[in-house]
Amino acid sequence: MTDITIAMPFVIQSLEGAAAAGCDTKLFLKECGISPALLEQNQARIALDNFVMLQQRIMKVMNDEGMGLFDRPLRLGSFDLMAHAMMAFETIGEILERMCHYNNLFEVGFIHAIEIHDKYITYQLHRRHPGAVKNSYIATSSAMTIHRFLCWISMTRVPLVSVHLDYPPPDWSAEYRSVFYGFPVKFNEKCIELTFHESDMLLPNKQDFSGLHAYVARAPRNIFTPHENLSYSTKIRAEILRCIHKERDVPNMEKIAEQLSIHPQTLRRRLQEESTDFMLLRTQARRDVAIYMLSNTQYRIQDISDQLGFSETSAFVRAFKGWMGTTPMAYRKL
């Protein structure tokens, strides 16, 4: 099962290019197991599996990896072509430089550039013209794709000194905590920028072509799947989910700290450094498991409540309504 869910604004924006091209977006949603009624629920979320299926469907029908959200199509196979070319280089510094070159050859959406400042390397994405990039989702995912590829090819989380985005903070800006692994994000900047430590550009290419084939086949799942064993928030979420699924228990901070062999106070500080806290991570994990289980009709509401550690079903119903703006039963019927 997936334990990651996607906020509805990302789903809505993913559909905008297809809708403008006259595609039957309601049919796309139904084919991918997503109720069109969910688009009317501001707090709704869908499972990552369904979101990836939807994006892959749009890309295939439109023959456009940009889903109609750039000023011109980015034909299927473009990312695969670029990714294969990157395998010839030994360090992520070389790879980043060549990615910049290849992206500009496509002449789609952005002009890509690299700037060097003292001990920092900044990858920039400048919009080719005011209408070149249709919405914030495709702008964000373009930056995410670059960063996630570097993480994958080096088999490590490549630290970001900062992230600049060239649009106002959306109502769902809280989602950007996970989008950019908790690294600092600024909005309303002159262009999109990913800034790295120059020293990290020496990280080696640790992948091979067999791994690349699998990576490309998973796209765009890769940009929403955290690189394993990255941060304390990622580790904690994974441990909470393990306890929910395997032990039918929702652990407290002390139990998680013991599992990670770290003092609770130290763990609390680490989470503060990542701009999050334990209760938020636990709530998000419970919410995402609830959404998954509700999509499977074999689970009764009481079963889900018990799995998530609620003392009474009514307490789960109240909590779910607080998360999603509707009751579990109403959500299941959407």
Rank of each mutant, 00 (worst) to 15 (best):
N135P: 08
E97L: 13
L202K: 13
A219V: 04
K26C: 12
I223T: 02
L334P: 02
D288E: 14
Y331L: 13
F278D: 02
G322T: 10
T122F: 04
P184N: 03
G68T: 08
P170H: 04
A88D: 14
E65R: 01
L260N: 03
T313D: 04
E65M: 05
Y215G: 14
D71E: 06
H129Y: 15
R332Y: 05
S231C: 07
R269E: 04
A18L: 11
P168C: 08
M99I: 10
H147K: 09
P204A: 11
L150D: 08
F196K: 10
K190D: 15
Y137D: 00
E65Q: 13
T195K: 07
E107T: 02
N188P: 08
L54S: 05
M324W: 00
P36E: 06
R237N: 09
V158D: 05
E97H: 11
S78M: 11
T283R: 12
A20G: 01
F183N: 07
E90P: 04
L48H: 03
M253W: 01
E115A: 13
L160Q: 09
L105N: 14
L260D: 00
D64N: 07
P36Y: 07
T91Y: 01
D200V: 06
S210M: 07
V179Q: 00
H117I: 11
E312M: 15
P159L: 11
M329E: 11
S142D: 00
Y123M: 07
I244L: 12
K206R: 13
K26R: 09
C151T: 07
E94T: 12
M82P: 02
G322K: 09
E228W: 05
I291G: 05
Y181H: 12
H245V: 09
A174D: 08
S142I: 00
G131H: 12
R269N: 12
I116P: 01
H101W: 11
Q43H: 11
C32V: 05
V317G: 03
A330F: 00
E312L: 15
W152Y: 12
T25R: 03
S314L: 11
L212R: 06
D208Y: 07
A18F: 07
Y176P: 02
M86R: 01
S261K: 12
M329N: 08
P220V: 07
M293Y: 04
D24M: 09
G322S: 15
H213R: 14
S295T: 03
E258C: 12
I192G: 05
